[in-house]
Simulated scan of single mutants.
Amino acid sequence: MRVSPPTYRLRWDGAQAQAAIREAAARGLRLGAEHVLAESRRRVPIDEGTLERSGAASVDDATLTAAVSYDTPYATRVHEDLTARHAPGRSAKYLEGVLPEASSTVQALIAAQIRRATS
């Protein structure tokens, strides 16, 4: 008696897969932006804490773009003034300085979300 090999059927829905990957990438970006915000808050100069509290992370899901910002009238001045004195651990370039250090963590967060969505 001859046994036929099993047959399999695969249905590929590329649009659904692409949508799941984009959604996962947006989740990863959101986590990455929150990570950058948390790290920059550890460095932001503190007088009354207003600048630190003004920090926000946002993600544009349509363009898969993330942003971290501080929203006070003096945020840019404090960020750019390399001559100002700050408490230990606090510094100018509190946002810009974090980005190179956080990039591998941000990439890992995005990749983990995409892996989760595709496994």
Rank of each mutant, 00 (worst) to 15 (best):
R9N: 14
R11G: 12
R11L: 13
W12V: 14
G14L: 10
A15V: 04
Q18D: 12
I21G: 01
E23F: 02
E23S: 12
A24G: 08
A26W: 14
R27Y: 08
R30D: 11
G32A: 03
A33C: 12
A33D: 03
A33W: 02
E34F: 03
V36K: 06
V36T: 01
L37W: 04
A38L: 11
E39F: 02
E39Y: 02
R41V: 02
R42S: 13
R42C: 06
P45Q: 00
I46E: 09
G49F: 04
L51H: 05
R53A: 06
S58K: 05
V59F: 04
D60M: 06
D60Y: 08
A62D: 11
T63A: 12
S69T: 13
S69W: 08
S69P: 00
S69V: 08
Y70S: 00
D71L: 14
T72V: 01
P73V: 01
P73T: 01
A75S: 10
T76M: 08
R77I: 10
R77L: 11
E80Q: 11
T83G: 15
T83F: 15
A87F: 15
K93Q: 14
K93I: 11
K93T: 10
Y94I: 01
L95C: 03
E96C: 02
G97F: 05
G97N: 06
V98H: 00
L99C: 06
L99I: 13
E101R: 09
E101S: 05
A102I: 07
A102P: 04
T105E: 14
Q107F: 12
A108S: 15
L109G: 01
A111P: 05
I114L: 11
I114N: 08
R116F: 09
R116S: 14
R116G: 13
